[in-house]
Design a protein around this nucleic acid. Sequence first.
DNA 1: ATAGGCGCCTGCTGGC
DNA 2: TGCCAGCAGGCGCCTA
Length: 283
Amino acid sequence: MPELPEVETVVRELRPRLVGRRITSVRVGKRALRRRWSPAWRRRLLGRRVTEVRRRGKWIVIDLDDQSEIVWHLGMTGQLTVVSAGQPRRPHTHIVLGLDEGERELRFRDVRRFGSAVWFPDRQAVERSFTEAGLGPEPFDLDRNTWRRRLAGTRRCLKAVLLDQRAVAGVGNIYADESLFEARLHPAQLGRQTSRRQAERLRQAIVTVLSRAIERRGSSIRDYVGGSGTPGSYQAEFRVYGRPGEPCPRCGRPIERVRLAGRSTHFCPRCQGNAPPANGQRD
DNA sequence: ATAGGCGCCTGCTGGC
DNA sequence: TGCCAGCAGGCGCCTA
């Protein structure tokens, strides 16, 4: 579910609800998430106060007052919300951190359990783990020449590059398709066949699409809600994702769906051209 | 280097 | 109506 706009929305909504609050209870379910929760972390967290909530790619980082940090990933169906403790706990709620006097709590709910929560002793350890994973630049900081070279140096298709968190952090299946449509580039076009102008167009398209999606508080198809528990609305503005057979909003041709980089991929065969010839550099 | 496949999980939809 | 294959906002591991 959650790509950069959804994660950004969660962070923005958690921040005012968490910063300054103290963790006074920790409850963790028995069933494992993607990464195992160490029982020792409970005592690390008790009594700590939240100093900041931030985002890196699709990761949520909660800073604590002893410099330690909790790093969350929402996987496909994760929800991280602050709610009043009286609200009934829905099924698949795996982690509950009680806050202050216990009137509110941070809840992690994740139906498919592809998400995770990991405690790190300090910021350096978190940064190290991001570096080891090769996590790439934030799309809003993406240098145009870095991006151009990245594309020029690969024979993977554009869709695969966009999904690769080492190339650019935070883009997932929805926003990859929407960005390629915005840039009028075919998802199967190879990176190395991408002209300078096309690369820059794609970079700007990513920024445009992600910014607009953040304004709409992300996309809610099924599970996603922000940090306050409210769904987003960008799904109403999808131009190709999830709309195979429907007319392209630019030219009216039916949107196509293919399998690319192992993922369902949506595009307009006219507006986004054909997969270019091996030596082609169209624009 | 990179494509492709699988596995991790649960739930929902559509076609028969 | 009921069953089951196929699909889903992610990602890491393996093989060829």
